[in-house]
Design a protein around this nucleic acid. Structure first.
Lengths: 249, 249
DNA sequence: AAAATAAACGTATTTTTTACATTTATTATA
DNA sequence: TATAATAAATGTAAAAAATACGTTTATTTT
């Protein structure tokens, strides 16, 4: 029998020797270890997922998450950092392990275990140029298309996870630009929770954490009056965290 | 170079063929996939960890978690269910994935990735007979001995996890016998959180969830007056969970 | 009969959450 | 230049939840 590489672009290597692996065959008695990244961004008031349009077999013209085999000489998290950098140009991204997907028949080509990672990134124009080059694109999380293998399951699990996590950790800030307005922050939380929040209570709550700094500037893009810009205060947040605080919106 | 199996008891197999693997050598260019279980129990008012005393090389006479290689024909969770059953005789145990440990140098013998799982079990005499046979034993979580490889790190991570999880899910009930008293339940939560709780507020809170059923019987082991026994009401709990409830003590 | 022990219970205070409507700053347009 | 339109900013009262705290009860042992 004849199998193709899980990912067959110039960036996906056979884990044992780092050489291109286009049309070799998989060893059925051997574990392959992959990493798949569920990358979220926030744009235009909507939570987005980065998907990759495969241009070659297998799964030509189908969508998948951004992934790669893990090389024998790197850890799973090193692999995920590597491909995130490759696809978005970003380093120092908020990325956490979701869970391991290891069903025997999850990948017909390989006995392949995948460690899924979810990441939150700030979308900007540079990134959008790069992902276009790579054949990736953003899709709205309310309209997630069919993805290969068990990738849809991974996305569902990741969404559940970020909803939970966002109740302790100010992950919202990872998705917004450095300067943001409170109405934008609220929209993000509404996108994460998929429900409306009361603007007065939201503002009160956010400000009560005392981890954002009001700037003099206003953002007048979405309103004539303009909304004050704020910045996240990492220093104060770290202090707060140390004292065992819980960030719950 | 010459390497030994990660676990070398009759229960640990080479993942490719399920045959005994005592003194063969590892393929350094190949990923081995292992599972390690952080098994918690509750006994005598203390939270306990199940550790395994290795009687053969490598790591003879050292302590480790209960673990195994994952076989090529099973998923990670199937492997963890398998070894949990083998060591404790238990099936249908509360067990969840903790995270993946995959540093390149975490195991000097193998390029081995381990998916750690944490489990909560009800200790009883039967189990204690079986674990003794297997060479395993309970240690107090406040006095965890040195374990092999990165197993201490796994335990630390698991403790952090169960402290977090116990704020949403009534995991406490997984660790207690079917019939338990409120003071015992409180002791358990105190062991998990490592801090004292107010008995009046604790009782009020627990009863407000309306998921435990008061029985007519009393447990007079730790008091002359005796404490009423209660039972967990799984049915009511499931209903509650569906309605989006949060179980936080 | 008295002492000792752990279980069971209630209430007042503080804190947090929720619900809800109006005013403000600015731009566009009549 | 007055008016309409738009989204941002703000406060307060009521309800719910969390916290702090002391006494009584049932029973066994002495």
């Amino acid at each position: 029998m004849f199998f193709f590489a899980y990912f067959a672009s110039r960036t996906f290597f056979l884990q044992t020797n780092n050489t291109l692996f286009m049309d070799s065959y998989a060893d059925k008695d051997k574990f392959y270890v992959a990493v798949d990244c569920i990358i979220f961004g926030f744009d235009n008031g909507k939570l987005k997922l980065l998907v990759f349009n495969r241009k070659i077999d297998p799964y030509r013209n189908l969508l998948s998450l951004i992934g790669s085999f893990v090389k024998i000489g790197e850890s799973v998290s090193e692999a995920s950092v590597r491909i995130l950098k490759e696809f978005t140009g970003l380093e120092n991204v908020y990325m956490k392990e979701l869970k391991t997907y290891s069903s025997v028949d999850r990948d017909p080509g390989y006995r392949c275990l995948s460690v899924a990672q979810y990441a939150l990134i700030r979308i900007n124009d540079e990134i959008n140029v790069l992902i276009k080059e790579k054949g990736a694109k953003w899709v709205d999380i309310e309209e997630i298309p069919q993805l290969i293998l068990d990738h849809n399951e991974m996305v569902t699990d990741a969404l559940i996870r970020i909803r939970k996590i966002s109740r302790y950790k100010p992950i919202g800030f990872e998705l917004l630009p450095q300067k943001f307005t409170i109405p934008k922050l609220q929209m993000l939380y509404e996108a994460i929770y998929q429900r409306e929040l009361d603007s007065r209570n939201f503002r009160k709550k956010i400000l009560s954490f005392d981890v954002i700094i009001k700037l003099e500037e206003k953002d007048r893009v979405s309103s004539k009056k303009g909304a004050y810009l704020y910045q996240f205060d990492h220093h104060k947040y770290k202090k707060l965290q140390k004292s065992g605080y819980n960030f719950e919106v």
